[in-house]
Amino acid sequence: MSAPVAPAAVPGQTKRVPLWDNARFIAITLVVIGHAILKLIAESDTAYGVYLFVYAFHVPVFVAVAGYFAKANPPGVKQLKRIVTDLVLPYLIFETIWSVIHSLRAGSPSIDLVTPSWTLWFLLALIVWRVVLPYLALLRFPFLISVVVSVAAGYLPGVGGAFALDRTLALLPFFVLGWKIRQLPVTAIWIRASQRRILIVRAGAVAVFAALAVVIAVNVPLWRDLKIRRVFLFEQAYPEFGYDQWWAGALRLGAIALAVVLILAFLTLMPRRSTWFSPLGQATMYVYLLHSFVLYPIRESGVLSGPQNDLLLVGMIAFSILIAVALSTKVVQRVFRPLVAPRAKWLFAPSARGA
Rank of each mutant, 00 (worst) to 15 (best):
W246M: 13
G306F: 01
F57H: 10
R337Q: 14
L38C: 01
G281R: 08
G158H: 04
K330F: 09
L144G: 12
A211R: 05
D45G: 15
A341L: 12
L171R: 06
S110N: 11
V294M: 07
F277N: 00
V5L: 12
Q333F: 06
M316Q: 15
R299W: 07
E240S: 15
L92Y: 05
I317L: 11
P239S: 04
A217S: 14
A318I: 04
I256Y: 03
I181Q: 03
R140S: 14
A248C: 03
G204Y: 13
V287R: 06
A255E: 08
F266C: 12
A188D: 08
F143T: 08
I83E: 07
Y155N: 12
G354L: 10
A47S: 13
I26Y: 11
A27Q: 03
I263N: 02
A344L: 02
V128M: 13
G12P: 00
V186P: 01
I28N: 05
A3T: 09
G158T: 07
I127L: 13
R167T: 13
I191S: 04
T268G: 01
A355T: 03
K39L: 08
S108P: 00
I228Y: 10
V63C: 11
T119I: 03
F53H: 06
P221M: 13
L40G: 09
R229F: 06
G12Y: 05
A164H: 05
A106N: 14
Y135P: 00
Q195N: 04
G204T: 02
V176I: 09
A47D: 10
D21L: 14
T168N: 07
R273Y: 01
H58Q: 08
R192I: 02
I198Y: 00
W20N: 01
S320F: 02
